[in-house]
Write a protein that binds this DNA or RNA. Structure first.
Lengths: 356, 356
DNA sequence: CTGAAAGCGCTTACAG
DNA sequence: CTGAAAGCGCTTACAG
């Protein structure tokens, strides 16, 4: 059948060698060490490669080199409570950037009760040389295990438990929130509250810190209101109700996530306030929900994060690669229309590059 | 360094053979054709495999068998206009189900101007045996090319251009919408409109057809209102405004997507109507937005779709595998609270299995 | 600068 | 039921 024909017809390095009248090693050199060949020979081999439509059999290369040039990436059913698909987008960017680094990505989905086993197995098959970790969290057993077994890896997200490990890339949430505060101040909002997660979550605490820094920079700390809520719409709405009780007209709320911001928008409507003119609202992650509801939100630079991850991964065997901390951008939409008290220009749908 | 130690220390089939006092072929047979071995031998080999923590080097196996037991899956930056991440979830389900089918998934991201080239290249490396296609659309060049080159593949989504190709799995959107209509009727809504995409899109037309069928089944066709909008919130809101002009209180709108439904909710609020009691609203795809806004929505059974895709893919070399059409479920939330006119029970957050 | 040899870790016939 | 041989398509030293 057609399938066999297509597969069997594939040219090998020997076919190219025969066609070009050289030995197979010369073809291999043309591919891997072109500078070792005489220009004429190289060109002759190149021509035959093109003519025959030859592609290196990566499988054979992997076996011989004892190296897969491939990395594993764990995927999961997105946690129910976690709105947004930041990691899905990160995966796409990682995949798009892989060829630049002569690599590819193999995805795998561990059983929840034996995550480490899945990493061990992937490694055992020889299909991957290492891993790109995402969603690292305090207590995460993966970095330690990988380190102990000498497995190359890089993390998207700080390696919380081991400050000495610097092979990570992360987004500076604090800077992102600071930026949001500064944007609100520029838009004329004068009392800026924060709705965050219960303290103890490193990411959440970092974002709250950014809010405080922003207030300090603007000299607005005297009116600081802060509330917290878990990542749940009803809880967030209640917390927002409490904030609105203490907030004067023309105030704003910066939130640790788009879902929390959605709670604020809902609460605002219940209070007869229009998000934007009456109450500034900023979310975090610039999810689909933010876009659909015209919510201003902090956006993580996922393409740059993916690029950095690959770069760090390749450097990992050499010397301790430094951490990379990227500054997010702010996508401004109608929920931060200049406050009704002022008369500034309305800035919709614009993307502001972050300048912390 | 540690890395080399970890890699070099890996046991091979020869190590196991030596430890068990058999030849390497016997170990291979223990792994691939255990029924060919004497029970005692098998057990002895098994014990050594466990003791040494041996894992087959899949790379060597791939080379020898000339088969990767891996399939390619194309990922893309999710189209800007397309809310929801159905395909991301599909990828996760596909990945989770892969081991059951002794396979794994390699992701790749083609350059938009040479999609076929990316497929050809993936195949040329020997890293994959075939592909799982998603997001098939009329005019899609991929199925034809793959078929011509005898490459095994299966599609998530009908192969619109080639009705003779049956190696696809899809979700019966028509049945899903029919179900939504039936649910609305049960909840007491008596005038049920449809907000869809401009006709010509096969998926959209199918969903509209489901609405019509639902109306007919309920004997409500005399009051049918239908409007259309592209996948854009402002457009959708305008289209919803037009619908609301003609809809009496206690009416409902079934939509071709969650984004369109969001437009209806927005328009409803502008008209002083509360989605749910005053106006039933149903979306499609059960995205994050639907969950966040308590929008009733049709949900695609992505886990079953992934399972079916693998099954079809494995059958593809045997005989023409039939198409698989799955029935979606309806996730009911507060936007289909029983209409205010009636006094039925309120059904929130329940998942109804589809019975077309 | 080019070529002959060895070998990566498996599986697939094929003898015993 | 078990074992010796050949080979998948490459790359890596190592001679010429």
């Amino acid at each position: 059948m057609a399938r066999r024909a297509a597969t069997g017809a594939r040219a090998t390095i020997v076919d190219v060698a025969r066609a070009a009248g050289v030995s197979r090693q010369t073809v291999s050199n043309a591919l891997n060490n072109p500078e070792k060949l005489a220009p004429g020979t190289l060109e002759r081999v190149q021509r035959e490669i093109d003519r025959l439509g030859f592609t290196l059999n990566v499988t054979a290369q992997q076996l011989r080199r004892r190296q897969a040039s491939a990395y594993g990436f764990e995927v999961n059913s997105s946690g129910a409570a976690r709105m947004g698909h930041v990691l899905d987008e990160f995966l796409v960017e990682l995949t798009a950037a892989a060829p630049v680094h002569d690599s590819h990505l193999v995805v795998f989905a561990p059983e929840p009760d034996d995550v480490i086993g899945a990493y061990r197995h992937m490694l055992g098959t020889g299909l991957v040389d290492g891993f790109i970790l995402a969603d690292t969290r305090p207590g995460d057993p993966r970095p330690r295990w990988l380190l102990e077994h000498g497995v190359p890896f890089v993390a998207f997200g700080r390696i919380w438990d081991s400050p000495e490990l610097t092979q990570w890339v992360d987004v500076d949430g604090r800077a992102g929130v600071r930026q949001a505060v500064s944007h609100l101040v520029d838009a004329g909002y004068r009392q800026i509250a924060f709705l965050g997660w219960p303290s103890g979550s490193a990411v959440g605490d970092d974002r709250r810190e950014g809010w405080l820094e922003g207030l300090r920079a603007a000299g607005l700390t005297d009116t600081a209101i802060v509330e917290e809520s878990v990542q749940d719409l009803d809880e967030a709405t209640s917390a927002a109700d409490r904030i609105l009780d203490g907030l004067s007209t023309g105030g704003a709320v910066v939130c640790a996530s788009d879902l929390l911001a959605l709670g604020v928008m809902r609460s605002a409507r219940n209070h007869g306030l229009e998000p934007g003119p009456d109450l500034g609202v900023v979310g975090f992650d610039d999810t689909d929900v933010a876009e659909a509801l015209q919510l201003t939100s902090v956006r993580q630079p996922l393409q740059r994060a993916a690029e950095s991850a690959w770069t760090l991964l390749k450097a990992v065997t050499e010397e301790p690669p430094g951490p990379v901390l990227l500054t997010p951008t702010l996508t401004t939409r109608s929920t931060t229309t200049p406050a009704r008290l002022t008369n500034g220009p309305r800035t919709d749908h614009t993307q502001m590059e972050g300048t912390p």
